[in-house]
Amino acid sequence: MTTSDRSDSLDQIDAVETVTDAITGLPRPLLLVFDCDGVLAPLTDHADDSVLNDGVGADLERLSEASDVTVAILSGRSLDGLAQFGFVDSIVVAGSYGGERRGADIEELSPAEQRLLESLDAIAVDAAETAGPGAWVERKPTSVVIHVREADRDLGARAIAEAWTRQSGLDGHECHEGSNVLEFMARPTDKGRGLSALRSEFGPSGTVYVGDDVPDEDAFAVLGPHDISVKVGPGSTIATHRLADAADVAALLTSLARRVDGG
């Protein structure tokens, strides 16, 4: 099945063992990269309530200890937001679409970037007020995010639309729209650039990326024809495979961990 055929199929779900076979058939060394929310942890109304599915942390650790496998998390969350999951040190953790990296200092914003971030923050605050109760603003080192998942649906949609219009009057930033969120980045990056940086650093022969939301399509797009991309959940995608939900991802990790180390 071609990529375009997969995108147009009616959310065809692959069996976990089918995806396991595809991944274990890749040449080593192997780079396994995962989004977090909706992939390793079920989606929740508020990010602070999110937890990894049972067994996920242990299976990721087991995979990361293999000599020819690198395991990485590439999330839109900040590093502070990812800390709650307790990923072990053998796992590479990149937050803010790759703009932050555990164990590395982030470059301070320039005066121009700081002014831009302040302007974007003001738009985000107004959007949260428009959306009303349940909406909130998340602040990261180089970006600001409007969350409306817990707000009234119509008011939330209106708030996002108005914020989108207002940001178009500014220059030098990028926007990422996800499921009931809109992020303004004063220092532009995306998951495609984040994944490319990981691949450049670790030089894998095979790469796997697993994600569930619109920003993950940027990561899928930088993979080669012999890599593996896995979309989690419904929705149009360019990914080569699809799993139903985070529970399927947990099963995939268990299957991979058994195969990789022969357990």
Score class of each variant (00 low, 15 high):
Arg149His: 09
Phe34Gln: 03
Arg115Thr: 14
Gly262Ser: 10
Gly203Trp: 11
Thr18Asp: 10
Leu79Trp: 12
Arg102Asp: 09
Ser229Gly: 12
Gly132Glu: 14
Leu26His: 05
Gly86Pro: 03
Ala72Glu: 03
Ser200Gly: 14
Leu52Thr: 03
Glu100Tyr: 15
Ser4Thr: 14
Arg193Trp: 09
His176Gln: 07
Gly76Asn: 04
Leu195Asn: 08
Glu113Lys: 01
Gly263Met: 05
Ala122Asn: 13
Asp8Tyr: 15
Leu30Cys: 08
Thr240Met: 14
Val88Phe: 14
Asp105Glu: 15
Asp14Asn: 01
Leu60Met: 03
Gly178Asn: 05
Asp248Ala: 10
Glu177Asn: 10
Val16Tyr: 05
Leu60Lys: 02
Asp89Glu: 15
Leu243Cys: 02
Gly25Phe: 09
Arg259Cys: 00
Cys175Thr: 15
Ala244Thr: 09
Ile13Met: 10
Ser90Arg: 09
Ser110Val: 11
Ser196Phe: 09
Tyr97Gly: 01
Ser236Asn: 12
Arg115Pro: 03
Thr44Asn: 05
Ala250Cys: 06
Gly178Pro: 02
Asp227Met: 05
Asp8Pro: 01
Pro133Glu: 13
Asp80Trp: 13
Gly103Cys: 12
Arg153Gln: 10
Thr240His: 13
Glu217His: 04
Val92Leu: 08
Ala251Ser: 12
Asp37Trp: 07
Pro133Trp: 11
Gln12Glu: 15
Leu82Thr: 06
Asp245Gln: 02
Phe85Leu: 00
Pro111Met: 08
Gly81Ser: 09
Trp164Asn: 08
Val145Pro: 02
Asp49Pro: 01
Pro215Asn: 12
Ala127Ile: 04
Leu109Ala: 04
Ala124Gly: 06
Pro111Gly: 02
Thr70Leu: 02
Asp80Arg: 10
Gln12Trp: 15
Ser75Asn: 07
Gly178Arg: 05
Thr189Glu: 12
Glu177Arg: 05
Leu155His: 15
Asp245Ile: 03
Val19Arg: 01
Gln84Ala: 08
Ala159Gly: 04
Arg77Phe: 07
Ser4Val: 15
Ser143Met: 03
Lys231Met: 14
Pro215Trp: 09
Asp105Cys: 11
Thr3Pro: 04
Pro215Ser: 08
Gly172Thr: 04
Gly235Glu: 08
Ala197Ile: 11
Gly132Thr: 12
Glu100Ile: 13
Ala197Arg: 06
Arg6Ala: 06
Leu40Lys: 01
Arg149Leu: 06
Thr207Ala: 08
Cys36Glu: 06
Leu10Lys: 09
Glu174Tyr: 09
Val69Lys: 01
Gly103Pro: 03
Leu32Ser: 02
Leu74Asp: 02
Asp190Lys: 00
Ser67Gln: 12
Glu129Phe: 13
Gly99Trp: 07
Asp154Thr: 15
Arg199Thr: 15
Val56His: 07
Asp171Trp: 12
Met1Ile: 11
Leu182Met: 10
Leu26Asp: 10
Val181Ala: 01
Glu100Asn: 11
Asp14Trp: 08
Gly76Ile: 05
Ile73Cys: 01
Leu60His: 03
